[in-house]
Computed example of a mutant assay.
Amino acid sequence: MKRSLLGGLVLAACSTHSFALNILLVNDDGLTSNIKALYDELKANGHSVAVSVPCSPQSGRGGAIVMYSPTTISVDNDKQIAAENGCHNGAAPIGAPAAGGFTKTGYTNGNWNYVHGTPVMATAYGLDVVAVKQWGKAPDLVLSGPNEGQNVGKVVVHSGTIGNVQFSAGKGIPSIALSADTNTVDDKTLNNANSAIVAKQTVVLLKELQGKAGQGPLLPKGITLNVNFPKNLTSSTPFAFSRIGTYDLYNFKFKVSKDDKGVNQYGLGYDIAPNAPTAAQAADESAVMQSKIAVTAMQVAYDQRPAAQEWLKIRLKNLFK
């Protein structure tokens, strides 16, 4: 009886250990309530976590690979940091190295890192510098987000949140993009209650993936996930299959307006989809995420399916001789 009990304890311990992952957290928003909540929740569940985020908010940068400062943080190429006198929410001040550990009190344990560049540059720093220093190897998983706003439909091609996982998944690392509603923002205390719910539901998803993967990789090679949480998220909100599809909540367009002096102002505008999704669009992310947690499988990079490859060979066979 004692031997059986001991054996069970050993197996349980091994099982627990095998499910502890080395996780790199990245995003395109910098230091936020969402990433703080997810970091805390993952640590509470036994995972080893490192963070590498942009110094300043970088929404819409997609897969851009740009450093704004080659040596120290300055406002020359990134005016966003001028208002905060440094990185978002005090992560590091102007004049600090262009990449490094947070200087903000409470975030100096070596797990929190920033890069004064685009989201993908912060992800690259996390993979090539932070992960190597912390674990001596690549992470088991990259989680990008949770973003402060959903990334659904065709907007995903412009998203820094998505750009991060395309970059890391392209290196063969299981990667998941996470996006929540804007009601998770809290730049005063970094302690939004909605952020905590998003974090807990993320761990629910992670445990399910781990349970199915066993000792294998969390996701098959060439597949990454896009996960969108609805505005009215609760601990009982169900998960649902979704696809990027053709239904888009947002119709982005170039916007020209005038200020109070009549001077033209140029920027990005958008319209909300005027029509409800059709029956054929019911499984599209933009429809599903309005009431459920939408989980979508994405391919890595832009390579087409074999059928389309054959179509191209036939269509241009005279050129491909």
Rank of each mutant, 00 (worst) to 15 (best):
W135E: 06
A99P: 00
V142H: 02
A98S: 13
P139A: 06
A96S: 15
L127S: 07
T105G: 08
G110R: 11
A91G: 13
T161R: 03
G95A: 04
V155I: 13
Q134K: 13
A138Y: 05
T103G: 05
S144P: 11
V157E: 15
E84N: 09
T161Y: 07
L127A: 11
A96M: 04
G149Q: 02
V129F: 05
H116W: 00
P93H: 11
P139F: 02
K154W: 05
K154I: 12
T123F: 02
N111E: 15
E84V: 12
A98F: 04
E84L: 09
D128I: 01
N85Q: 15
W135D: 00
N151G: 04
H158M: 11
G136M: 05
V132Y: 04
D128V: 09
G110W: 00
L127Y: 03
G145H: 08
Y125D: 01
V130D: 04
V132W: 03
A99E: 14
V120K: 01
G145K: 08
T105A: 15
K154N: 12
L127D: 06
N109Y: 02
A98H: 05
N147K: 11
H116A: 06
Y114H: 06
V132N: 12
V129K: 08
I162S: 06
A96C: 11
Y125K: 06
A96T: 07
A98D: 05
V157K: 13
G136K: 05
A92L: 06
C87A: 00
G153L: 10
S168C: 11
Y114G: 03
K133A: 15
H158N: 14
K154V: 12
H88Q: 13
N164H: 08
K137H: 13
G149I: 09
H88E: 12
A131F: 04
G136E: 08
H116T: 04
N85M: 09
K133R: 15
P97C: 01
V155G: 01
F102N: 02
N85R: 13
T108Q: 14
G163L: 04
V129G: 05
L127E: 08
W112C: 08
H88N: 15
K104H: 03
K104F: 04
K104W: 06
T103Q: 13
K104S: 06
T103K: 14
A91R: 04
G163I: 08
G136C: 11
Y107E: 09
I162T: 09
V120C: 01
G95V: 10
K137Y: 07
S159W: 00
T123V: 14
A138H: 11
H158S: 14
A122G: 15
G136L: 10
